[in-house]
Design a binder for these strands. Structure first.
Lengths: 333, 333
DNA sequence: TTGTATGCGTTATCAA
DNA sequence: TTGATAACGCATACAA
């Protein structure tokens, strides 16, 4: 039989109030403290999270809303979040929205109705006024690698400017001049930052970015496949290519394989993406590896602090530098 | 202000009992039905899942315990599960255990304490008696592509025998005789079935499996990397290689790249894994693509039926055939 | 078919 | 510092 604080109280010969206080970390007389502890152990008492939640309006649950699980950037961050949460009493409720605004809204609503105590959001679609309700009800939100206009929230970011800058610059130093950049969706901050990094590196070295070099891969594998195919079909090919996300890098690879473009002989290639990708392509791919483990940990910690009411440095923006992992897909020309 | 069934009852001029019955699908007088519906809409009433759960001992939550999120087999099934659950009132609580038995036990315990209504489990480590408690408390479990000895539970499986058989046989038909098989951990059913499929195909064509052809990749990328390196370092190399999981296929690729083994010229290669992998390796990889979408959907539906008390065909074992996607990594010799 | 009343396990208020 | 007791929002047994 499952026991309640009433059973514990009876066995310890104290009142339920006292037991409840014990459970919530209030000070008791040392002796009573011990008595309760013993009773809890004997009865194998476990708190009932639903009853607790009903009273306290907390679910001890953290929502994670992400676009999908096929992106390693997302999954490694979620993994890190879960790991960080293991020592706490929080669990993760997972929701995906496939980059659809309607879906996103729906999921935001569902999770709010479940009384999540906090939210970790990977934003890749517009959300509507539902986010205001989160604010009104004081449900903290941590955004991953993006902003949402009009929403003051904590953010855990990749230093995307720096990443693109570094990648572009290394290509320039290898004497590349015609460096193309496959960007994502223009409306997103992550894309603007990357593009600015790319532009800044180009202009610092007095290189022109003619219009043909900047192509839009729309954050998707298939779109990237098409634009890269088009890009490399032109008479004036770039000698180097920087692709701004993992799924788009996959698309680019597919196109390049199909066109039989030699890497790095005909084209030097750098992709944003995880380290894993660099090991299974041939040649090994030079990638910009994002510090997902640190990001997930940070996001979890930030969120917990907010849940505990510590808004001292709100809104916080933490930026992590990525690492350029140089492999065989780039060369000097 | 958030409204309760009391508010709804008052506005509809009925009792809370009636409203509660309405919400749980009991029959009401048509007029009252309408009145309640109107009131609910006007008040934007939402059920309080915690209160509901406290009374009914249901959390409307389904636990998913998986080894980690870096395996596409896992993530695509989870995605399918979530999609199937969208039209229901269930949400997913996610937990990972990194193939450690202690972790698995811990997670099983945590989720039980959260009153999950059902569990989807990807078993790759031994679990202890905690699973008996699930049975005692009537929490249904669906196992994905594995069995747990001593546990009667529904299972959603890949037809691993058939998969390995088909893959081996196509290699045989391409005149390969020395076909090596990188297997996973022997203690798991998935591995035994694959191995039997491989053996069956070999013996049907009267081919001997000498001991050197069967190597153990331990289900991990790194282990597979090492054994394949060793395997291909021998004087007598196989002419074809079948690798029995996605992570191990990655490890095999790393080894083969490193040793500069020409694929498919020197070695024909088939890997278990997802379709995506086949597109980014060079040459394009022939893979055994598992029907993860269907599996996830089935798992969700099976679990919901059990939660609803329908145990008519318990325990059910559903087996899905995988698809051999032939690309450029195999050739006739 | 509906209303009333009790309890699910906890927290919080108020007295002691 | 502790005890008694009233909520929290809902489901259900029982009566009507």
């Amino acid at each position: 039989m499952v026991s309640t604080i009433h059973d514990v109280a009876k066995m310890a010969d104290l009142s339920v109030g006292t037991v409840s206080r014990y459970l919530n970390g209030y000070n008791l007389k040392e002796e009573n403290h011990q008595r309760i502890e013993r009773a809890i152990r004997k009865l194998e008492f476990k708190e009932n999270l639903m009853a607790k939640g009903l009273r306290s309006r907390r679910s001890h649950t953290i929502g994670v809303i992400l676009w999908n699980l096929s992106d390693k950037f997302v999954t490694s961050i979620v993994t890190a979040v879960e790991r960080r949460l293991e020592s706490t009493r929080y669990n993760l409720i997972l929701s995906t929205y496939e980059k659809s605004s309607e879906e996103l809204d729906k999921k935001l609503r569902v999770l709010k109705d479940r009384f999540i105590d906090g939210l970790i959001l990977f934003p890749q679609a517009r959300a509507t006024s539902i986010l205001d309700e989160y604010r009104e009800e004081n449900i903290p939100i941590v955004l991953i690698d993006e902003e949402i206009r009009g929403l003051k929230a904590d953010r855990v970011m990749v230093d995307n400017f720096d990443s693109a800058f570094k990648a572009t610059e290394i290509l320039i130093k290898l004497n590349h001049r015609k460096i193309a950049f496959v960007e994502g969706k223009k409306s997103f901050l992550v894309n603007r930052e990357q593009r600015e990094g790319y532009m800044a590196a180009m202009s610092r070295h007095a290189l022109a970015v003619d219009s043909g070099l900047l192509v839009n891969g729309g954050f998707s594998t298939i779109k990237s496949y098409h634009v890269v195919k088009q890009l490399m079909g032109k008479k004036e090919r770039p000698t180097a290519l920087l692709v701004s996300s993992q799924p788009m890098t996959v698309g680019a690879l597919m196109a390049l394989y199909e066109l039989n473009v030699g890497i790095p002989d005909e084209l030097s290639l750098i992709g944003f993406g995880d380290y894993g990708l660099s090991m299974i392509t041939r040649p090994f791919l030079t990638v910009i590896d994002k510090p997902t483990a640190a990001m997930g940990k940070k996001a979890a910690e930030l969120l917990i602090r907010r849940i505990n009411g510590d808004y001292s440095d709100f809104p916080r923006m933490v930026k992590f530098k990525s690492k350029l992992v140089v492999k065989d897909s780039i060369r000097e020309i």
